[in-house]
């Protein structure tokens, strides 16, 4: 499978996102990236769109739904939202969406900070195979992977995608 370059995807996403913001008449959105890969993508989009609000970061570890099966995920990062979420239009960014569980957790965490006016979901990669009714508004590329295949974003410098196989 030939994988697209991340830079070209981010260029396209950035213009799609600007169009969506214009269409919805959103002037001062705040952007939030999900650790770790989502934060890298968000940083690149944040720069391209030249947003005024500082970039926010979410670590959804404490909101995951598999704690009782898998325990605490090691190397937890800190969530940091440097703006008030109440009434704020938020662009939520992750590197990939597959089951939708990460986004479910991220939305729950976001709402524990306040009540956003709206949330736009942006993901670099959309891997088919959702468990939950959650769809991104903007995607970079859709991939149809075999069950044992996983897509991985490498970064933060020279971001590129690779496919790995699990047993």
């Amino acid at each position: 499978m030939t994988l697209p370059t991340v830079d070209s995807l981010i260029n396209n996403m950035s213009s799609d996102l600007q169009n969506l913001l214009d269409q919805r008449a959103i002037n001062q959105p705040a952007m939030v990236g999900i650790h770790t890969g989502g934060a890298w993508v968000a940083k690149a989009l944040h720069q391209q769109l030249a947003l005024d609000q500082a970039l926010g970061l979410l670590d959804i570890t404490f909101y995951r739904d598999d704690f009782t099966q898998k325990g605490l995920h090691p190397s937890v990062k800190t969530s940091d939202l440097p703006f008030a979420t109440d009434g704020q239009h938020i662009i939520l960014v992750d590197d990939a969406i597959s089951s939708g569980r990460t986004i479910r957790a991220a939305l729950n965490e976001l709402f524990d900070y306040g009540r956003p006016a709206s949330v736009i979901l942006v993901t670099l990669i959309d891997v088919l195979g959702r468990d939950l009714p959650i769809q991104p508004d903007i995607i970079g590329e859709q991939l149809d992977l075999a069950p044992q295949q996983r897509v991985k974003l490498n970064g933060p410098d020279n971001m590129h995608l690779t496919i790995t196989h699990v047993n």
């Binding site: 999900i34 989502g38 995920h73 990939a96 939708g100 569980r101 195979g129």
Partner: peptide, 8 residues
């Protein structure tokens, strides 16, 4: 996979 998750 991505984010250390099975199905990000």
């Amino acid at each position: 996979s991505i984010n250390g998750e099975h199905g990000a």
